[in-house]
């Protein structure tokens, strides 16, 4: 089957600001795809382009095998979108909004609607103004999850949810995943959420894709931190490409090492004689932070 989303080299400018600067994003049909990036990286803009709300200044985008701009409404029948900054009409109740959005998408599974309202502990009789941000988020999520669609596009859906509801959200997405008939694009800047839910992920920064792949692929990109006490002097460690931040003092060394330099680095340690060794496993957190703080990656 073709990819659910395939965007290449997207460019979008707002006056002097370049929000998207050659962004690539591929989401395979049936997967839960994490879309990560710091605030202002261009996640929302990308999603708006994919929904045909905005027109890209360059690049190409395909959504469910259609043109997001030209075929917008036909495509929207097959997807549900939860905007990042949801607000609803102050004089409509949450229940009315759920039904309205569901009907406008071409139908709603009432049994699922009922179940989701219970799970998210939403009072559907309250009016728009009376809802907090988290509750508005729930309204939008329930409307999306209760719709019979192939693709869910969720823009930072858990911002505003309390930890308990965040857990409910995770369970719900995991259930969707087990059923396996939906594709989910989940934009987020919460790593643990993405780690828990996603098959693959794309990290963007300043409108550009900086990493994309499965969680394991990306873990592979991260560095292991090694601290060791040695019996003799170590040679050649500094010369290995992929060893970073090396410090040596009274027989102790500590350094960060890329996955593919791990073997030569360990070999040179062993050659010097190891008294003790602590290694900190690679974490996505670290990779993530490196992208966030704008350090060049590798």
């Amino acid at each position: 089957m073709a990819d659910a989303i395939d965007a290449e080299g997207l460019i979008k400018r707002f006056g002097a600001v370049t929000a998207l600067d050659g962004l690539d994003l591929t989401v395979r049909t049936g997967e839960v795809h994490g879309f990560l990036g710091p605030n202002g990286a261009g996640k929302t803009t990308t999603i708006r382009v994919l929904l045909g709300l905005m027109r890209a200044d360059g690049g190409s985008a395909r959504l469910l095998d259609g043109d997001p701009w030209a075929d917008a409404t036909a495509l929207h029948r097959r997807l549900a979108y939860v905007p990042g900054d949801v607000t609803f009409w102050p004089n409509l109740t949450g229940g009315e909004v759920i039904d309205l959005l569901g009907r406008l998408r071409g139908g709603l599974d009432t049994a699922r609607r009922k179940r989701l309202i219970e799970r998210f502990e939403l009072d559907p009789r309250k009016k728009g103004r009376a809802y907090s941000k988290g509750n508005r988020q729930k309204v939008a999520l329930i409307a999306a999850l209760a719709s019979d669609v192939e693709l869910l596009i969720l823009d930072e859906p858990t911002s505003g949810l309390d930890p308990l509801m965040e857990e409910v959200f995770r369970e719900t997405i995991l259930e969707e995943k087990r059923r396996g008939d939906r594709t989910v694009l989940l934009s987020s800047h919460i790593l643990s959420e993405v780690e828990a839910l996603c098959d693959r992920l794309t990290i963007i920064r300043a409108g550009r894709t900086v990493e994309t792949g499965t969680l394991d692929d990306l873990r592979h990109l991260t560095r292991t931190t090694i601290r060791a006490e040695l019996t003799g002097p170590v040679n050649g460690l500094a010369g290995i490409a992929g060893v970073h931040d090396l410090t040596t003092a009274d027989g102790r060394v500590s350094f960060d090492v890329d996955a593919d330099a791990l073997e030569p680095a360990l070999k040179s340690l062993v050659a010097a004689g190891v008294r003790s060794l602590v290694s900190q496993p690679p974490s996505l957190e670290e990779l993530f932070l490196r992208h966030y703080t704008g350090e060049p990656v590798r």
Binding site: L92, T93, G95, E96, V97, I98, D99, L100, R103, L104, D123, P124, R125, K126, K127, R129, A130
Partner: peptide
């Protein structure tokens, strides 16, 4: 303010 409303939408509320 603060009155509760219907939990489901009437049939009329289903189009732009």
């Amino acid at each position: 303010a603060g009155r509760l409303g219907p939990a489901t939408a009437s049939a009329a509320l289903g189009s732009p």
